[in-house]
Design a protein around this nucleic acid. Structure first.
Lengths: 114, 114
DNA sequence: CTTAAGTGATACCATTTGGTATCTCAACAT
DNA sequence: ATGTTGAGATACCAAATGGTATCACTTAAG
């Protein structure tokens, strides 16, 4: 898959969807609850939720006749890591430091602490 | 400005534009040089470059009759910082640690969540 | 069963988007 | 001056996008 993070960036490309993510960061919500925070119909919000779900940014769980949408912030990591590639242009000194550290740890478990 | 980072996310929403950014990360290029790396016309690439420039992700400098496009990775920071808000959902333990440190200075009630 | 509430699925619309084709302008080489 | 090359500007097109309206389905409540 040449560009697996396209659905993520695609989902982040709309301000309403970014707002929805922040909203769901507070607490899981049904479609109606989410839609109550925006000046558009439930159907429109639902479309945004589909795009978000398509990008893996939210998970949807049925609760009776409702659908509870929960944030899955972990899906943001690929996009964040893609951006991380550009760190080298922000601060070369810090990048040199990281490179030096990486040379010491030839382990490939991919531990990524901040 | 309610959403100043919209142009940035908008620019990142297209895979071609993300590829262009990586490409310009190697070295500044003219429009023709950039277009030489994609299976589309110069005009199409130019449009992408306009979007990227609109998001501040690249800078354009004339050199003779050519236009040299250079990466401006610093413009990614607002988007990165927006994503940083979701760090709290990635690693609760780290967040709890940070919270604990903050509590040391405020001497709040010892309300610990498991 | 009947009714209401929450959701899913279409159909439809206006606008944006990604792309090409084409023309013109500016700069370099001869 | 002339021809060539890089780039800007338009016009144009097909497809995607964001949104509404509407209807069907499912679940909860009487």
């Amino acid at each position: 898959m040449p560009d697996a993070l396209q659905p993520v960036f695609r989902a982040l490309g709309d301000p309403t969807r970014r707002d929805i993510l922040r909203l769901l960061g507070q607490e899981p919500m049904t479609i109606a609850e989410v839609a109550d925070n925006f000046a558009m119909t439930r159907a429109a919000v639902k479309k945004h939720l589909v795009v978000l779900s398509d990008g893996g940014l939210i998970t949807v769980a049925p609760r009776g006749r409702e659908k509870v949408n929960s944030l899955n912030a972990l899906a943001l990591k690929p996009a964040l890591e893609w951006m991380g590639w550009f760190d080298q242009f922000w601060d070369d000194r810090l990048d040199a430091l990281k490179t030096a550290i990486e040379k010491e740890t030839t382990d490939d478990t991919g531990h990524n602490n901040g």
